[in-house]
Design a protein around this nucleic acid. Structure first.
Lengths: 161, 161
DNA sequence: TATTGTTATACTCTATAACTATA
DNA sequence: TATAGTTATAGAGTATAACAATA
């Protein structure tokens, strides 16, 4: 079976299933009161306490102005705080609060639930095989295991791959 | 290796790799002057000539008003046309023009290029294995092989899966 | 003069609601 | 009265550019 005989190919299927997984995760973060983007920032700050906004922007491949509004929202919901660096007063060091840590625990539970939903229909061997292949692709692409895109796009149509 | 020991899991990896694939495809459609959404509509109309806008909205899981603007753009770039149904003058039957068919051929080439990029680093056996597993997941989810989401979102940060 | 962060603003994509025309 | 499509409008998410504070 050559690639062109296939009803849909790896690129297409990855796009389709990735969007599906993203939507299911988004539904769960929204129930917890967060957008996927906010959840992602919280996760990174939890793993790298003291990271500043510029570093966060680089990690997320976005601009500082966007980080401002994301951190604003986390701060106003009490999940994270900004602390002025004592060594460089331009810099804001970011930290997760106790409430933020509680939220991270809830997000981890949600991710566990999502995992079983996403893999439903595959037996343990298939899951292991799929996991291994995807992890290899991710490594080949040089993707950061801490960062994944939060499609802000709950019901976005098409593309023909 | 239990799920919770994993550095990143299937749901997370699918989301990450799916976004990556979507972005690479989007870059290609943009070069051809189309958004992923426009490309997707063109593809569907090419496969189902005469489909009307309501049917298209259902297929894309979106609203009719959105279909209007998508079809508007395809029509004004000469890739598709609306034809009033003779049996129900409320209904607009959609058709691809010659220029639209030429564009579809270019999109197919782009998809071929994307496919080799996305699967780069895997040998033929691995690709076949991955393809089989993804196709099974897609079938289990009941996803439509004609429709996949066009993330309109070129550089969207995070979510913690 | 360069860098960190902020504000103001604008653009894209998408949905909701009111409307027109046909049935 | 219901349906296919359209228009007008609003919202979310994101980026760009000008600005303030600090280095």
């Amino acid at each position: 079976m050559s690639p062109s005989d296939r009803p849909a190919r790896i690129g297409f299927l990855l796009t389709q299933l990735g969007a599906h997984a993203a939507k299911s995760f988004e539904a769960k973060t929204r129930e917890l009161g967060l957008s996927p983007a906010q959840a992602g920032v919280l996760r990174i700050v939890g793993r790298q306490p003291g990271i500043n906004q510029r570093e966060l922007a680089v990690k997320l491949s976005t601009v500082q102005s966007r980080v401002v509004s994301l951190v604003d929202s986390l701060e106003s919901s009490g999940l994270a705080v900004r602390v002025r660096s004592t060594t460089d007063r331009r810099s804001q060091e970011l930290h997760v609060t106790d409430a933020g840590r509680a939220m991270l625990a809830r997000l981890r539970s949600a991710a566990e639930v999502q995992e079983s939903e996403v893999a439903a229909g595959l037996d343990a061997d298939d899951r292991e095989q799929l996991y291994t292949l995807l992890l290899r692709l991710s490594a080949i692409r040089g993707l950061d295991a801490d960062v994944h895109p939060g499609y802000s796009d709950p019901a976005a149509p098409q593309a023909g791959g």
